[in-house]
Design a protein around this nucleic acid. Sequence first.
DNA 1: TCTTGGTCTGACCGATCGGTCAGCTCCTGA
DNA 2: TCAGGAGCTGACCGATCGGTCAGACCAAGA
Lengths: 181, 181
Amino acid sequence: MARSVPETHDEILAAAARRFAVTGYKGTSLQDIAREVGCSKAAVLYHFANKEAILTELMAPAITMLLALDERLLGSTGQTAQRDAVEGFVELALRFRREIALLQGEFPELLQAPAFAHIQRCSDRLRDALAGGSPGAEAQVAALIVLAGIAAACAEFPHLGDDELRAALLAVARRALGPLD
Amino acid sequence: MARSVPETHDEILAAAARRFAVTGYKGTSLQDIAREVGCSKAAVLYHFANKEAILTELMAPAITMLLALDERLLGSTGQTAQRDAVEGFVELALRFRREIALLQGEFPELLQAPAFAHIQRCSDRLRDALAGGSPGAEAQVAALIVLAGIAAACAEFPHLGDDELRAALLAVARRALGPLD
DNA sequence: TCTTGGTCTGACCGATCGGTCAGCTCCTGA
DNA sequence: TCAGGAGCTGACCGATCGGTCAGACCAAGA
């Protein structure tokens, strides 16, 4: 029954992604993941140090892309930053449809740890960029609606193709962010 | 130490609302709630049949208002329904800032039970009304972004007063839903 | 053929979960 | 004055959680 390491490793990761998307991180047990893979819970913990390590590796690519977007946004301000933020975040959400819901939903609580504080700050800067740098209530509210809304839409419309969903997300987000854009 | 029934009952409800808003339903234990109230876990279960009963009673007013909104929307279509849906949902979200996040976040999973199927159908109709009755991808995406975004914003901006938040939510939602409105 | 090391399992651990129960305290009314 | 009931507690229950561990299994190299 023994498979090659990378094979089982990736199967666990894929199974965890599916389960987390449906029942959330806290709502998914190691037993659930093991059952979906078709192995024992001990096998899951042979490939990953602990449950959190699965989540961390699962989110790593999305977080890397988020950090890259953040860095890109540092070089611009105002309308330019806002346009880049919208396009960048839509692309990120499309690429990581399942993961982005975790980031918006449960992840904040898991990221309270000081070690992950930079991710919180990074998503705060993303929100500011979406707000066009304005501290006003309406601009901040618009930015948050766009952020949370895009994340929710990507999770909720898995049947929509990338191109169709991208077009809809960009159109709605640009309208929501107002005349600035 | 014995307090009057309605007093303790309401204290438990209030404590649960606070905890659920921070750590979610699944992430909050009866022990957590009891600690916040300053009583034993057994006392919590003296006032409520079980954990789910706390959630049910906590959500009841919000669900009642949601059903009322649904009924009101049945009488109209198109732009009229869309306008009513936006205003009605914004008012609902403002009145139940903490509860609405549960409804959007964890509640769907908890509401899988057939007994609660009508709530799912009701929120589906709300989304359709927000989409102006259009089945198109962009209209549906816009409706979901508005729905999820408003819920997230109410949870995220507790410091904003009702009036200021209402104005911002209405403005952003109307823009997001497009030229139809 | 035997050894070795990577892969995986079943049994088990302590902690915590939601929930139960016998019995305590204290207020109230006859 | 005292019986009775409401409000509450501490101890306890079985189930499940994340995690550990000794050892079984098996392919590959000596």
